[in-house]
Simulated assay, not measured.
Amino acid sequence: MVIRGRAPLRVSFGGGGTDVAPFCVEQGGAIIGSTINKYAYCSIVPREDDQIIVHSLDFDMTVKYNTTENYVYDGRLDLVTAALKAMNIKQGCEVYLQCDAPPGSGLGTSSTVMVALLTAMAKWKGVEMDSYYLADLAYQVEREDLKIDGGYQDQYAATFGGFNFIEFHGRNNVVVNPLRIKKEIIHELQYNLLLCYTGDIHVSANIIKDQVKNYEKKDPFDAMCEVKALAYAMKDELLKGNLYSFGKLLDYGWKSKKRMSSKISTPQIDELYEEALKAGALGGKLLGAGGGGFLLVYCPYNVRHKVAARMEAVGGQLTDWNFELRGAQAWITDESRWDYKEIRVAIPGGEYHFPL
Score class of each variant (00 low, 15 high):
Arg4Asn: 08
Arg4Cys: 06
Phe13Leu: 12
Gly15Phe: 07
Gly17Phe: 01
Gln27Arg: 14
Ile36Lys: 04
Asn37Gly: 06
Tyr39His: 13
Ala40Gly: 11
Ser43Ile: 11
Arg47Tyr: 10
Glu69Asn: 15
Leu84Thr: 07
Gly92Lys: 11
Glu94Gly: 05
Val113Gln: 09
Ala122Ser: 15
Gly126Asp: 12
Val127Ser: 11
Val127Asn: 08
Asp136Trp: 14
Glu144Ser: 07
Tyr152Ile: 11
Phe163Glu: 01
Phe163Pro: 00
Phe168Lys: 08
Arg171Trp: 07
Leu179Val: 09
Arg180Ile: 04
Glu184His: 04
Ile185Pro: 05
His187Arg: 12
Leu189Ile: 10
Gln190Tyr: 01
Leu193Tyr: 07
Tyr197Arg: 05
Ile201Trp: 04
His202Met: 08
Ala205Val: 00
Ile208Trp: 01
Lys209Asn: 00
Lys213Gln: 09
Tyr215Pro: 04
Glu226Lys: 15
Leu230Tyr: 01
Ala233Gly: 03
Leu239Pro: 02
Leu239Ile: 14
Lys240Met: 01
Leu243Thr: 07
Tyr244Asn: 12
Tyr244Cys: 10
Gly253Gln: 07
Ser256Glu: 11
Ser265Leu: 05
Lys278Thr: 09
Leu287Thr: 10
Gly290Arg: 00
Leu296Arg: 05
Asn302Met: 08
Arg310Ser: 13
Met311Asn: 08
Val314Trp: 00
Gln317Ile: 13
Asp320Asn: 15
Trp321Ile: 07
Trp321Gln: 03
Asn322Ala: 15
Phe323Thr: 03
Ala330Trp: 00
Thr333Gly: 12
Asp334Val: 12
Trp338Glu: 09
Ile343Pro: 01
Ala346Gly: 09
